[in-house]
């Protein structure tokens, strides 16, 4: 951005100050190979290192969510009361002095005579293997993340686009409806739902349907307000394009990337909402678990056994980080402004 500029004194311009450009270059029209839109997007995406790393990490996490619960030798719901609250202990690594099962300078495993016992991520207050539980929880949380993003995009974005594009009375009515829905604090809605709905996944989806999409709709609306006065929209309209065609074909591709990024932010929110739901009796049924519930359980022992919350927060943060890098990549790939040949 700070390119050097040669200062030229306008009073003393000589022929030497002018140079011919493109000398020796054969000037002719370039033709690009015809590539389909999606392929073009993919080509751009591939070049983005961060995005590819993100995708790989997500795939790894998904693979772990599938096979992780099977490889530690413990069942996720297996309570062994003698093995409560054990810190992480990993074979081989323990020889290096890390993950050797000590807490506050004492090796808890040896103290309890569990010389041949290994909990890679430690165990929880009920003596359940956290490694297995984290990957079981990841399954649930990934599903909830997916639901949250789909709701965000399908409901929130469309709502915001339509409301913002039409403006006037439509906007007024739609915004008031969203305001009423959002004006009732989520906490109250969720708690009240908790009293009437049964525990389980359908209730979680239902709750997210009610509360999850409003933030996104507001952002989408703001973006439309910014774009809809642009000339190219006017041009499209003059050419006889229908309203919905303008919304979804002309406006949406321009803001889609931005919205994808924002929808990633609803992921942790949804995951924590789910954790809160289990608190009010709506979330996942024990002994099943989720990353959110693991975090809120681990929180109760944070100052005593920090390992209980650490592993689940790290998995969540990794998940979030890679989702974000992926979203960034997708955004750049979709964004027509960033295509420079």
């Amino acid at each position: 951005m700070d390119e050097e500029r040669t200062v030229i004194d306008p009073a003393n311009v000589s022929d030497k100050d002018f140079v011919f450009v493109q000398q020796g270059v054969k000037i002719m029209d370039e033709t690009y190979a015809s590539v389909s839109y999606m392929k073009d997007v993919w080509n751009h995406f591939r070049k983005n290192r961060g995005a590819v790393i993100g995708l790989v990490v997500i795939c790894l996490i998904i693979i772990m969510a599938i096979i992780g619960p099977m490889i530690s030798g413990y069942r996720y719901d297996e309570i062994i009361l003698t093995n409560q609250s054990l810190p992480p202990r990993i074979p081989l690594l323990e020889k290096l002095g890390i993950f050797n099962g000590s807490e506050r300078g004492r090796n808890v495993y040896f103290e309890r005579g569990l010389n041949d016992v290994y909990y890679w991520f430690g165990s929880d207050t009920n003596g359940r293997d956290l490694f297995t539980r984290i990957w079981m929880g990841t399954r649930v949380s990934l599903f909830i993340a997916l639901v949250a993003v789909v709701i965000d995009i399908v409901v929130g974005m469309s709502y915001g686009l339509i409301s913002g594009y039409f403006g006037g009375k439509v906007d007024m009515v739609m915004q008031r409806f969203a305001e009423i829905l959002n004006g009732v604090p989520t906490l109250v809605v969720v708690t009240l739902l908790g009293l009437v709905l049964p525990q389980g996944i359908p209730s979680i989806i239902f709750t997210l349907m009610i509360t999850g999409w409003i933030g996104m709709s507001r952002i989408a609306r703001a973006e439309v307000l910014k774009l809809k006065e642009n000339e190219y929209i006017l041009a499209s309209r003059t050419l006889g394009a229908k309203d919905f065609a303008i919304i979804f074909k002309d406006i949406m591709p321009n803001i889609f990337g931005q919205l994808i990024i924002m929808s990633m932010f609803s992921v942790p929110n949804a995951i924590f909402t789910e954790a809160f739901l289990s608190f009010v009796g709506l979330g996942i049924q024990p002994p099943q678990t989720s990353l959110g519930s693991l975090i809120s359980d681990g929180y109760k022992s944070l100052t005593i056994h920090p390992h209980m919350i650490m592993s689940s927060i790290i998995v969540l943060a990794l998940l979030m980080l890679s989702f974000n890098m992926l979203a960034d990549g997708i955004r750049d790939a979709f964004d027509p402004n960033q295509k420079k040949g």
């Binding site: 309570i79 009361l81 908790g194 009293l195 009010v280 049924q285």
Partner: peptide, 21 residues
């Protein structure tokens, strides 16, 4: 823990859980 004790000791029993304020 009760859930776990019951399903371990009693083959064929399923315990569903309801947790409310």
């Amino acid at each position: 823990n009760i859930q776990q004790m019951l399903v371990t000791a009693l083959e064929g029993l399923e315990i569903t859980m309801t947790c409310k304020p």
